[in-house]
Amino acid sequence: MMLPFRNSLLIGLVTLLVYSCQPTGQVSLYEGEPFNRLSDYHFFTGRQSALNPNTGVIPYDLITPLFSDYAEKARFVWMPQGQSAEILENGDLGFPEGAVLIKNFFYNLEAGRQLIETRLLVREAGDWTPLTYIWDEDQRDASLSITGGFAAVDVPLPDGTTHAIQYVIPNKNQCKTCHESGGKIEPIGPKVKHLNREYTYVEGSANQLAAWSDYQYISNYDQDNHTALTTAWDDPSEPLQERALAYLEVNCGTCHKADGSAYVSGLHISAESDPYQLGICKTPVSAGKGSGGFRYDINPGHPESSILVYRMKSDDPGAMMPEIGRKIMHTEGVQLISDWIASMEGSCE
């Protein structure tokens, strides 16, 4: 019933994109070695830093995203002509050869938007290739980087102040630390439960899964079946525990899972974990100074003596969690997890 409306909406969107932008050519993907410049892909038309998506480049958002030093993220997906993803049994998306996930990291500073880096995941020969492009100082384009690097940023905080950091742009191997699943690189965000909400497109609002389906970027969407939905970590109307678990799953569970890079710790964080796997009354194994002098990962009722909270607060590379991708404490995230632990009953003794 809604479908015709959505179709017309998206056709309108596409028409707009095709006719309103500088003719910079269609999106193209490299054969062999990756392009050195981001603009060579033609993901964006006109002035690159404006991030105006080219035909076939669709923006998306996630319900509960990973915290990355308060950076804003503009995400897009692109697939080759005639290709589409398939929703798998577990709610993941199976992407076709040539699909690209595009994530731009930037800050809205007083002087205007400052793009730091653009990360791509490119589906090649059945695997994902991670690529990182670092934006030029003049913001005209971005260049491929293997080693990553540092960028000095005065990060604007929610309270209106700023915090100076050396923002870390990951190197090639670091991408895998978070994106590893069973030894392979996998996307983290684009799954049914993370995408399943309205997005405000240029022409209006639509459910992201339905929009991808209408655009034939998903071949088998069934709105009656594909109803998985994660909790928005920052929605105060949702139950505290669900918000906390959604936050932890995205910010910790990508590594702390049975086939993730932190599996050796035995701390496996997802909404389905039992209390001990979640860290409740679990003593640390190889935390070193990450223990903060505390005995339990989660000490029920006591966020102030829970290792989990200590490591979320720390900015010491040898103690902090996540181990990479964060230089500033996520005050609002720490508050959420602290509130959740404070609300727990019981004792480890």
Partner: peptide, 9 residues
Amino acid sequence: FAPEGGVVS
């Protein structure tokens, strides 16, 4: 000199 928390401490 191990931080408190781990067994070796």
